[in-house]
Design a protein around this nucleic acid. Structure first.
Lengths: 205, 205
DNA sequence: ACCTGAACACCGTTCAAGT
DNA sequence: ACCTGAACACCGTTCAAGT
């Protein structure tokens, strides 16, 4: 708040004339970062529509990386997700054949998939002493005993800074584009399987 | 730190004799919460092993919900994920046939899946004025125009407090067990598809 | 209507001083 | 070796006072 006030050239307390509290600002920030992630009107290609949604969410966060931890890990940020987004996702899943409790589950899967990878990918670094922390991460894994952790030791060169946990930068400096593509493939194929076993489709069999 | 010191009946500054800073404690907390999530020695049933991993991670977070936002959305928490966990996941994916870059992608998918749903499910509520916030969420969706958002309006009774975004409690008070099961099914089937298209298996065709 | 300015009740962390 | 105690540089938020 104080920093924001400084950039606005007012006293910190002036902000409270326009906004009830800090959380309201955070929700508005999330809303702004995600305001244009919704794909064009849902077609009958629900797989393609979901793929677009996942990629557009990632683009929104990539443009405003500080919202990652907010949108993916804080309930306040729900205020930043518009009813239209929810309605469209439900519409698309409904068109995919999901109904009742199955639709709810599919919806929860979609939201979790949408936020999951990206929240981790753009997770903020520790604020202070970044170089020391980076070295300690590198060291933990490089000094990990090759006999105790043989597979890790073998793949370490491929993983360093390109794999979750085994990295010291986040998606801003070291994006995981290809892994994200694989992730979206996994989710869409998994949802396809889920759609194929809902009652309506089973009745058609 | 000050609250922790109070429960330890020491001055806040005494803590710094044992620990370099707050982040080190947070990493240790994550480590403790997740220390026993690793399934028994990897068998050849990599699907079953991954299912267990996902469920045990959720159990760990369910027992210590405050680590959700840490483990899923902050890079410091990487220090709380043990090399053994990484090595085992890589071992299992290797046994599933993943190699090279594909193994890295599968690994990233597994970590993202493991943390994604659960981070959102146990996302902390806003600290202050919980009832006011809860009413505002409820109101946002109940007053959402049924003509503008027809599908949302229709499914709202099924969704309220049981679906991401459309809720005012987190997994501590309103767990999403069935949706999580669907999520794990989606992930495992998706990974199965991914495994079936890696080079080694294509060569066998 | 909109902002200042003082004040309150907090933070994490340092460093010298005690025992 | 381990803790106290003062101090520093921060927070978000309130409320009365100004214009």
């Amino acid at each position: 708040m104080r920093k924001l006030a400084r950039t606005l050239d007012v006293y910190p307390t002036a902000i409270y004339w326009y906004v009830p509290n800090r959380n309201a600002i955070l929700a508005a920030v999330v809303d702004h970062a995600l305001h244009d992630i919704l794909p064009a009107a849902p077609s009958d290609d629900w797989r393609g529509w979901l793929r677009q949604l996942f990629h557009r969410y990632r683009e929104g966060v990539r443009r405003h990386p500080n919202v990652a931890a907010l949108a993916g890990a804080q309930l306040i940020s729900n205020g930043g997700m518009r009813p239209q987004l929810i309605d469209q996702i439900l519409t698309v899943l409904d068109s995919a054949g999901f109904q009742g409790a199955d639709l709810r589950h599919a919806y929860n899967v979609v939201i979790a998939v949408m936020t999951g990878f990206v929240t981790m990918e753009f997770a903020p670094q520790p604020a202070d002493d970044v170089p020391a922390w980076r070295d300690s991460v590198r060291n933990t894994f490089r000094s990990a005993d090759a006999e105790t952790y043989p597979v890790l030791a073998r793949y370490l060169p491929d993983l360093e800074n390109q794999a979750f946990v085994v990295r010291w930068q986040n998606g801003v400096d070291a994006p995981l584009d290809d892994s994200f593509d694989a992730y979206v493939d996994v989710a869409v194929h998994g949802l396809e399987m889920l759609a194929s076993r809902v009652p309506s489709t089973q009745a058609a069999v």
